[in-house]
Design a protein around this nucleic acid. Structure first.
Length: 450
DNA sequence: AGTCAATAGCGCCCCCTGCTGGG
DNA sequence: CCCAGCAGGGGGCGCTATTGACT
């Protein structure tokens, strides 16, 4: 069937390397625009059978494509990633497609004339100035790779466009419909699979420069490796989708590296979960305040705040908390007095790291929080906020007796002590039994401070 | 995939304190 | 001298987010 569709062979796609297994990559992604990548779920044995069958290359030969077995270790190797996308609009921003994660392609647009499924092809190779983006339409005949026993390849040249300097490129999908067509050699009754978008790997190697040939390697996935393939698929996490994320050497323990931050994980599930932190996706909505959360657990904790449900109760007092962490911290403050965070410059120790951090600023003199209206700078955020009241004139604390207002709660309390002494206890000097409003006022009596 | 605990971090508010300046 | 204003150091909790481990 495919043979009848051969029209013009691209000089750029005249050599097709044997199909081989490439375990390096595999991502499952779901994009806002519907772009999605999935793993190949074939078993290793199936893959091996396909690899060794030679069916693919045989069929290619039948399709008048000159087949050359290129050495895989060839130096000028290009790694292409094919990502299936569904073109639902006339312009698709490549930057919205997670797989196309190389910076150079930011802002690139692919213009399509017909809606429908397609492949976006990004070349990532040494010739960065000649990065190529190819839009490949997929006909109804395309089935997922795992179904294919025979893969027929048609390579046409018209619409291979080289990215211009500003990396913008328009590709006519209608024209590119003839660019590369993948067809299944035999009928299969797996209609559901037709809609399944599939991730392919295409490796190219530059051929004869004069003829501008590129040797292609269509690669499938090693299922054994794929079990650890991440499924992150959010636009914000595009940068994390490069191939190096999941590379490993045979026999070595696999680690996953986030390209957005320094995070590494030894488990795919951890990596997947981490990648969601680079998105704004918060699907879990609190129906009481419309706040959204990334996880069900976070939502549940939040709802407990609304309901007053505090499942974590302290055994030593009547305090209760929404989260276990709050209880642990409370117990350290009030009962165990465990202070894990110790200052290296003095004997200070704190329950919380943030408190130690704040404390250390008293050693270093650091004042990171600058007032925007004067030269004052604070060592912690709340001090700056308190300071800002001096500019705004805000006096949030009101004496409940005379209704005088104060900028600080402590000032108000001192006021009550001094002005409304009949209502509140005062401090008594341990030396002379003098009654004073503040402990610090003992110094005015010329007495040693207790 | 879901769950939980541990951890981290920021924010908010509080207390206590010391210093200062005006009345 | 009294008192209010203001800043420094620190305690304690509220809440959200992340991550490792486990089921």
């Amino acid at each position: 069937v495919a043979a009848t569709e051969i029209s013009v062979l691209s000089e750029q796609f005249t050599k097709i390397k044997e199909l081989e297994l490439m375990p390096e990559k595999g991502l499952k992604e779901e994009e806002k625009d519907g772009a999605r990548r999935e793993k190949d779920h074939r078993s290793p044995s199936e893959l091996e059978a396909e690899r060794t069958s030679g069916a693919f290359q045989d069929s290619v030969l039948e399709e008048e494509v000159e087949l050359v077995l290129a050495p895989s270790e060839e130096s000028e190797k290009h790694i292409l990633t094919l990502q299936t996308v569904h073109f639902t609009s006339e312009a698709v921003e490549l930057q919205d497609m997670s797989l196309l994660s190389i910076q150079q392609q930011e802002g690139v647009q692919v213009m399509v004339q017909q809606p429908g499924p397609g492949l976006l092809w990004l070349e990532e190779g040494p010739r960065q100035s000649l990065q190529q983006y190819v839009a490949i339409s997929i006909q109804q005949e395309l089935y997922s790779l795992q179904e294919m026993e025979v893969l027929q390849f048609h390579a046409l040249e018209e619409n291979v466009m080289v990215a211009s300097e500003d990396s913008k490129l328009a590709v006519s999908l209608a024209e590119s419909a003839g660019l590369i067509k993948l067809q299944e050699g035999q009928e299969k009754n797996q209609l559901a699979e037709r809609t399944k978008e599939q991730l392919f790997f295409v490796e190219t190697m530059s051929g004869d420069e004069r003829s501008d040939e590129i040797v292609l390697t269509i690669s499938n996935l090693n299922v054994e490796e794929q079990e650890d393939q991440p499924t992150a698929g959010q636009a914000d996490a595009e940068k994390a989708k490069s191939t190096k994320n999941q590379r490993k050497t045979k026999g070595a323990k696999r680690t996953f590296h986030c390209d957005v931050c320094m995070f590494t994980a030894s488990r795919m599930s951890s990596f997947n979960r981490h990648m969601k932190t680079h998105t704004n996706e918060k699907p879990h909505l609190c129906h009481l305040c419309l706040k959204t959360f990334r996880t069900v657990t976070l939502l549940r904790n939040h709802v407990n705040i609304h309901t007053g449900n505090r499942p974590y109760k302290c055994n030593d007092c009547n305090m209760a908390f929404v989260t276990s962490g709050e209880l642990v911290r409370h117990r350290r403050y009030k009962h165990t007095h465990e202070k894990p965070f110790k200052c290296s410059m003095c004997k200070y120790a704190s329950v919380e790291a943030s408190k130690l951090k704040r404390h250390v600023r008293s050693h270093t003199g650091e004042r990171p929080f600058q007032c925007c209206q004067c030269s004052y700078a604070s060592r912690d955020t709340y001090k700056l906020k308190r300071h800002m009241r001096t500019h705004s004139g805000e006096k949030p604390y009101e004496c409940h007796i005379c209704h005088a207002r104060f900028t600080q709660n402590g000032t108000m309390k001192t006021h009550i002590l001094q002005k409304h002494s009949e209502n509140v206890p005062k401090y008594q000097c341990p030396h002379c039994a003098a009654i004073i409003a503040r402990k610090s006022d003992l110094r005015f009596l010329g007495l040693p401070f207790p």
